[in-house]
Simulated assay, not measured.
Amino acid sequence: MSSNETPTLDAAGFTTLRITETADRVHAQLDRPEVRNAIDATMIAELHAVCAHLEHHPKLLILSGTESGGKGIFASGADIGQLRERRRAEALRGVNSTAFERLAKLPMPVIAALDGFALGGGAELAWAADFRLGTPEVKIGQPETGLGIIPAAGALWRLRELAGEGIAKEILLAGRILDAQEALDHGLLNAVHPAAELLDAAHALADRIAKQDPLAVRISKQVFSMPREAHPQVDNLAQAILFESEAKFERMQAFLDRREAKTAGQAPEQASDGASDQDHEASERTSGDNP
């Protein structure tokens, strides 16, 4: 490996995640189909390893499930066999919540591609992502109170932020399981795609993010998650950093050069069609050729 190449994650010893890594993203596939991708201690340890890698070498992360019994599944929840044996000390350590919070705070966005069941800890893993795409077969919810516990890995506060208090309480206190359309209607899914197209859609979203300036994306994610009282001061500080970046000058100059070239190529009558500079800029921005 040359000094300019980014190290790749050593996942040779992983047993619960299948890892695919490229220059700008990591795809981690939950792979315990025999127990419907139940999240156990080994999977948590491997998620920590993924986070450690991405904290040092920021890339996009796509999380997805696998098939179980011929049907797609994201994660059926925490491993009940292990969960039953956990006591006070494990709860205070926040076994799952620590990993999911670490994942939520990764420098670059996380995309969860959901198929089939995303329940309990599986749903909480999805809530920690920045984007959630699903299939029509998705069933997502928090059945923990039916087992005599609470969803302590983020759902008790993330759900209210994501969907509002009313539906959050139905999910958390009444055990309501949402289908894909309900999750989409309540803003818990960004989009729904046929199962055969789910990963392509996740990669297409990752492609759109990858076209943006990585530093601007990283800073936007950090500022977005800060409390209201930190704004607008934190916005001003973040913008001050970006105003001095080379990418800002290069991308803005490229945009101006393209607009100048496009305007120079118009006939006089076309150039005076009454459209303002803002109209031309909006047209260019929506053409897929963003700066």
Rank of each mutant, 00 (worst) to 15 (best):
residue 185 D to R: 12
residue 110 V to C: 13
residue 166 G to F: 06
residue 252 M to F: 11
residue 141 G to S: 03
residue 209 I to Y: 15
residue 282 A to V: 08
residue 272 S to V: 07
residue 185 D to H: 10
residue 91 A to C: 00
residue 160 R to M: 02
residue 48 H to C: 07
residue 222 Q to C: 00
residue 29 Q to T: 11
residue 213 D to V: 09
residue 250 E to Q: 14
residue 39 I to F: 11
residue 251 R to H: 09
residue 17 L to W: 10
residue 275 A to G: 00
residue 181 Q to K: 15
residue 231 H to N: 09
residue 4 N to Q: 13
residue 93 R to M: 12
residue 142 Q to C: 09
residue 13 G to M: 09
residue 46 E to K: 08
residue 126 A to N: 02
residue 272 S to R: 13
residue 150 I to L: 11
residue 115 D to V: 04
residue 79 D to K: 03
residue 137 E to Q: 13
residue 24 D to A: 10
residue 108 M to S: 07
residue 89 A to L: 10
residue 137 E to W: 07
residue 125 L to E: 09
residue 62 I to C: 01
residue 288 G to T: 05
residue 248 K to S: 07
residue 253 Q to N: 13
residue 23 A to C: 04
residue 93 R to D: 15
residue 126 A to K: 00
residue 210 A to F: 09
residue 229 E to Q: 14
residue 55 E to Y: 01
residue 209 I to P: 11
residue 210 A to P: 06
residue 164 G to N: 08
residue 53 H to Q: 15
residue 151 P to W: 05
residue 260 E to G: 07
residue 260 E to Y: 13
residue 236 N to H: 15
residue 58 P to T: 05
residue 145 T to E: 00
residue 31 D to N: 14
residue 87 R to A: 07
residue 39 I to Q: 11
residue 232 P to I: 08
residue 149 I to H: 10
residue 279 D to P: 00
residue 58 P to L: 01
residue 241 I to H: 11
residue 263 T to K: 15
residue 251 R to N: 09
residue 243 F to H: 11
residue 210 A to K: 09
residue 64 S to C: 12
residue 101 E to V: 05
residue 75 A to M: 02
residue 176 R to Y: 00
residue 217 V to M: 14
residue 59 K to N: 05
residue 163 A to F: 05
residue 70 G to E: 06
residue 93 R to E: 15
residue 290 N to Q: 14
residue 170 E to A: 07
residue 113 A to Y: 06
residue 288 G to M: 08
residue 111 I to S: 05
residue 145 T to M: 08
residue 86 R to T: 12
residue 218 R to G: 02
residue 250 E to P: 03
residue 19 I to T: 09
residue 40 D to F: 01
